[in-house]
């Protein structure tokens, strides 16, 4: 099968796209998908919680809480993820004298990064709720915390689900950067495949397609979940 198609991709005896190489390395690449998805899911789940806390700090009236949260968000969003990964993996161990563990560092960097973006998504949701909602809750004697918890957030959460889905997809793609500190995710394995097979185009193109299949699948899945949540009241 691969051979038959291959012949069509052949020009003047040179193979343009060698499906045999792809077939041989495919299982090897697929094993990286697990790591990629692991990084994405774990960071995403922690960022859902951490992002909310940072967002609540960011909209707080208390300067001592608000300003650090704002600095955090600005720093993360204003610097490249790659720089953040290096900073966590190589920078911090130098200051605090510990032996860096790539897997942990990659997770930390991704989580810290995603949390900042998530915080901004939450903040957008919280600030999109009409001011009168908070006032009505406060006028009933509810504390700020009660009003947030029972009135503002339940409404805000519904509005942040679509942008959160986008953030998930972004995170899935950006997680490829953890390959620079030796994580054997999909991206790392494609580099290895390129090096071993001397067929970089096949390696990177196949990898790109796998990422595309992943993002496409998750986009569809998230769209489906969104629809379910909307009709669920």
């Amino acid at each position: 099968m691969a051979g038959a198609i291959n012949r069509k991709l052949t020009r003047e005896g040179t193979i343009l796209f060698d499906l045999n190489v792809v077939a041989r390395y495919f299982p090897f690449l697929i094993r990286g998908v697990g790591i990629t998805i692991q990084f994405t899911f774990i960071s995403f789940l922690i960022a859902i919680v951490l992002g909310l806390l940072i967002a609540l700090g960011r909209v707080s009236n208390n300067k001592i809480i608000r300003v650090p949260c704002q600095i955090y968000i600005d720093f993360i969003r204003g610097t490249p993820l790659l720089a953040q990964i290096y900073l966590v993996h190589f920078g911090l161990p130098q200051i605090f004298h510990y032996k860096p563990v790539g897997y942990i560092d990659a997770l930390i960097a991704l989580t810290l990064n995603s949390s900042a973006y998530m915080a901004e998504i939450y903040r957008g949701g919280i600030e999109s709720i009409e001011k009168g909602q908070m006032e009505a809750a406060r006028s009933l004697g509810m504390t700020y915390g009660h009003a947030m918890r029972y009135v503002i957030l339940p409404q805000a959460i519904r509005r942040v689900i679509p942008p959160m889905g986008n953030e998930f997809i972004t995170l899935l793609k950006e997680s490829s950067l953890v390959s620079v500190i030796g994580m054997e995710d999909l991206m790392m394995r494609s580099k290895m495949m390129a090096g071993q097979s001397f067929r970089p185009f096949e390696a990177y193109f196949t990898t790109a397609l796998i990422y595309l299949v992943l993002t496409f699948t998750f986009t569809r899945l998230l769209g489906y979940l969104e629809g379910r949540l909307k009709t669920g009241g």
């Binding site: 009409e130 909602q133 009505a136 006028s139 009933l140 409404q155």
Partner: peptide
Amino acid sequence: NLIRQTAGMVFQQFNLFPHLTILDNICLA
């Protein structure tokens, strides 16, 4: 918060909580 409990307020724009039923709007506080 204690004072606000003794002073109910009604707004021009109603400001009911849209995610709760009418009964839950009343029972929340």
